[in-house]
């Protein structure tokens, strides 16, 4: 079943055309990897899907669960199940992380017309996850991302993701700032969500993240469009000859 359809997308950022005629289809349950050199437009694609303010769509369309995604505010896209793990998650000093987690769960539930979860219910959910993933509960008591190490920030993104159970997960350079152990842990966490219904778009410059989250499809982006699509074999070839050949 179709989840996301991108058709002939054209986007500019600060008056510069970054995406120029991009097509991509993601079905439920699929894991896609989008690779390319810095500046090829892959992060801009993530921003376009999530509704970032810097992005100006010049043409084309994006359909998400049969709805026109480009008409939606960022928070509506989020509440309809699009989650982005940020490359640099922002800090919110003074805002307790546990409070933030509770808030985002209940905001989404309210959007879906469901009753709020009680603090006790949410606490149980969170504690189950943190013990499952061996996350130190200490990060719940601190302010959102404030003074977190790179690894803690990514772990916190993972925790939010697992609580919100999104339909489309965008991982923007998730391995940046992570050592192998931390990356492995994050990979395990993401794989927990792969139940055949959720889809993932991995945006990465490097191959190593794909050792932990296995893609069904790999796309190479260059000059604002996808220039090659295929399976994992593309990655191995890239490993040998680099992006230069594309």
């Amino acid at each position: 079943m179709e989840l996301l359809n991108i058709n002939n997308l054209k986007v500019e950022v600060e008056d510069k055309k970054i995406i120029d005629g991009l097509n991509l289809n993601i079905k439920r349950g699929e894991v896609h990897a989008l690779m390319g050199q810095n500046g090829c437009g892959k992060s801009t694609l993530a921003k376009t899907i999530t509704g970032h303010f810097s992005v100006k769509v010049l043409g084309g369309e994006i359909t998400y669960r049969n709805k026109d995604l480009l008409q939606m505010e960022p928070e509506e896209r989020a509440n309809r199940g699009i989650f982005m793990s940020f490359q640099s998650p922002r800090e919110i000093p003074g805002v307790n992380n546990l409070y933030f987690l509770k808030t985002i769960i209940n905001v989404k539930r309210e959007f879906e017309g469901k009753d709020d979860l009680s603090s006790v219910e949410i606490m149980k959910k969170i504690k189950d996850l943190t013990s499952d993933l061996q996350i130190n509960n200490d990060i719940l008591k601190r302010y959102v991302n404030d003074g977190f190490s790179g690894g803690e920030k990514k772990t916190n993104e993972l925790l939010q993701m697992l609580l919100l159970e999104p339909d489309l997960i965008i991982l923007d350079e998730i391995d940046s700032g992570l050592d192998i152990d931390a990356l492995k842990k994050v990979g395990e966490g993401v794989n927990k969500l792969l139940d055949g219904k959720r889809s993932i778009l991995i945006i990465t410059h490097y191959k190593r993240v794909l050792d932990y989250i296995k893609p069904n499809f790999v796309h190479i982006m260059s000059g604002g469009k996808i220039v090659e699509s295929g399976g994992i074999e593309i990655v191995d070839r890239l490993e040998e000859s680099g992006y230069g050949r594309i």
Binding site: T50, E75, I92, P93, G94, T103, I104, F111, Q160
Partner: peptide, 23 residues
């Protein structure tokens, strides 16, 4: 910072008041 909070489903006004109250 606002976009980060909105990407978690929170509308802009609630996002600002969250930041201000934290501050």
């Amino acid at each position: 910072q606002l976009f980060y909070i909105r990407q978690r489903g929170i509308n802009p006004e609630d996002a600002v008041s969250m930041i201000v109250n934290g501050f």
